[in-house]
Design a protein around this nucleic acid. Structure first.
Lengths: 137, 137
DNA sequence: GCGATCTTAGGTTTACAACCTAAGATAAAA
DNA sequence: TTTTATCTTAGGTTGTAAACCTAAGATCGC
């Protein structure tokens, strides 16, 4: 049960775009790859997935680049994982063995609870220091 | 973010052992493999992991077999995943890029919430029909 | 038209999931 | 004590997918 590096990269690059959100700047791949230390050739694929899922917009040609398609707090961890993996949780759906049927139900239940949880984490949380909201520095 | 077939098999075979729990029977591999439709050669490895993690006991020789080491409601989904995968959630822990540090914190938070959730699901839930606890059949 | 960007379609490499094989260790039963 | 049924352990295999790279094309501002 692991979070792929691809999802990690997607979160990082989206956090970076969230920082530029509203500024009118459209960072290009090389800049994003450098700032978040992501292999540029791999980042291409990731940004493509994110665009196809409607999380980001892109502009070609000179002055081209990428920008978020929504407000920072409207992009959730659930959205990101689904954009990259095609779904939140992958599990066996074949009903096999005496316990197979019950397990498929339980996986669905786990997925539902996981969705609730990951919908509570947004890009805003990813660009906010963990000390924010506390009473000391 | 997927649940491996190995974890699915582990849950099924443990559910099977939970059904025999307290009966004094020690089902052997072939029986377990047949009842839960798991490749016997693969099941060997899984049962080994479960024994090394203290979730089950084994007996060699004639009349040998496997049995749960705890009560049904004392074996949680969290226990099972940890026994098989070595941990609940695997994620990148390298702090890289401008957003790396914050993400590592968030993954830890997700893990904690996931642990809380999976500790609420036990073998008892895996051998109980989904209609139990309802007021109709 | 030129050059900077995104777009798309491939290829590579390494690791791991999901198995199988086979020789040993143990313990009950004959 | 020999046999036989089980678990134990250490390896091997095979296919797929993650994590990259390469390179030719499509846009668009200048």
């Amino acid at each position: 049960m692991k979070v792929s590096l691809k999802v990690e990269y997607a979160c990082r690059v989206l956090a970076q775009l969230a920082r530029h959100n509203g500024s009118g700047e459209w960072p290009h791949i090389e800049a994003l790859a450098t700032q978040e230390e992501i292999p540029a050739n791999y980042l291409v694929q990731i940004l493509n997935d994110l665009r196809n899922s409607g999380l980001i917009q892109s502009r070609r040609g000179k002055q081209g680049g990428y920008a978020l398609a929504r407000e920072n707090d409207q992009v959730t961890l659930c959205d990101i994982i689904c954009a990259i993996d095609g779904g939140l949780l992958e599990f066996n759906t074949e009903v096999k063995g005496q316990s197979g049927a019950r397990l498929v139900e339980l996986w669905a239940q786990v997925t539902a609870e996981l969705e609730k949880m990951t919908r509570g984490i947004t890009l805003e949380d990813m660009i906010t220091s963990s000390h924010e909201g506390m009473y000391f520095i």
